[in-house]
Design a protein around this nucleic acid. Structure first.
Lengths: 195, 195
DNA sequence: ACCTGAACACCGTTCAAGT
DNA sequence: ACCTGAACACCGTTCAAGT
């Protein structure tokens, strides 16, 4: 740890994120962890927002992997699961991405891949764009909720086996519900009914 | 403005929100606006989070109004539009609600009304609950995006008539797309095809 | 080019003490 | 019961000055 570079800063950011959460990911704490003065970070990144954007990119890196060929609906489902997995892979990952990716989402690779899948499915370009946004909003919203609940539960140290029975225990099934609802909606729009 | 009460505080909060935005809605600025010391606010609200929660409730108050009788899909559409309108009625309204309502959403009236509509439509209770979440996530995500874009545009003071042509100008139509996609998805799940 | 030292202008929250 | 005064423990950001 002699010469600071962007990669070190991002790695340090993810370490703090995973161990202490988004609220503790401050420029000053990050600087301390990197054994550097707070001002040093500003030589590499213009401001905190930009840094968080770069962290978000790192979190979403697994989505660069090409999705296997197949039916459009399967590809879409695959993309959705990958996105959710990437967000869940880091503490507060969903919150960070949805907070910093608000408008940058427009230029994200995931979105483009979803659009292509929808176009191959038969949607017009304009509809495919709107559809991709719809799915993205759902995935982010659901995952932020799921993750915050997970963390609340583990922090609450639930009284023994009193796990929340009132909820479907299988969060993946819950996620899949909305996902399949979306796919069904697209199918209906395409005039398909079978499957 | 002699004796401070919760209502005054909430009204003052909304005033700051509308005029300066969520970032400027701080306990200290609020106190100054109310001609009071910051500590005074803590006699009425335990912390900022709770205060913001109460502000969110005020923003969503219009949704208490009973929704007219009709087909379930129409009721759902009506609820969705009302929610969006309520969020758009205040600067950063969508952001504030989606940030503070993360888990409180579970106990919101809107959600319950959506659930009832979906049950009347024919979904099982468990599916109706999941469906309501799905719709809610979409509405919040879409509206946060829409509102932030609105504010970026008006701040950017677009070079004359160079309004964003690359996007569907009608944001309501964009919103409706995802909404109808959702309704179609539910219909498909119900085994309906007509309409 | 890259970082330190030190400051600036803020935050949310607490709490004794006043009325 | 309700609020003030004053502090505590933080923030993000800037920038002259050092190497």
């Amino acid at each position: 740890v002699q010469q600071l570079n962007k990669t070190d800063i991002l790695t340090g950011s993810l370490a703090i994120l995973d161990e202490y959460g988004l609220a503790d990911l401050t420029m000053r704490r990050l600087a301390t962890a990197l054994k550097v003065q707070p001002g040093a970070l500003y030589w590499h990144f213009p401001d905190k927002q930009t840094l968080l954007g770069a962290v978000a990119d790192r979190i979403l890196a697994p989505l660069e992997e090409p999705v296997p060929v197949g039916e459009w609906a399967d590809q879409l489902t695959e993309l959705a699961y990958r996105l959710r997995d990437a967000l869940l892979a880091h503490r507060d990952g969903a919150e960070l991405v949805s907070a910093t990716y608000a408008s940058r989402l427009t230029t994200s690779k995931v979105r483009e891949k979803m659009v292509s899948a929808l176009i191959r499915g038969g949607l017009a370009r304009a509809d495919a764009e709107l559809g991709a946004y719809t799915l993205l909003y759902y995935i982010l919203g659901h995952t932020v909720d799921e993750q915050s609940r997970m963390q609340m539960d583990s922090a609450g140290a639930l009284p023994d086996d009193a796990s929340p029975l009132y909820e479907t225990p299988d969060t993946t099934a819950r996620f899949d519900f909305g996902l399949q609802l979306f796919v069904s909606g697209v199918r209906a729009r395409l005039g398909e009914h079978a499957r």
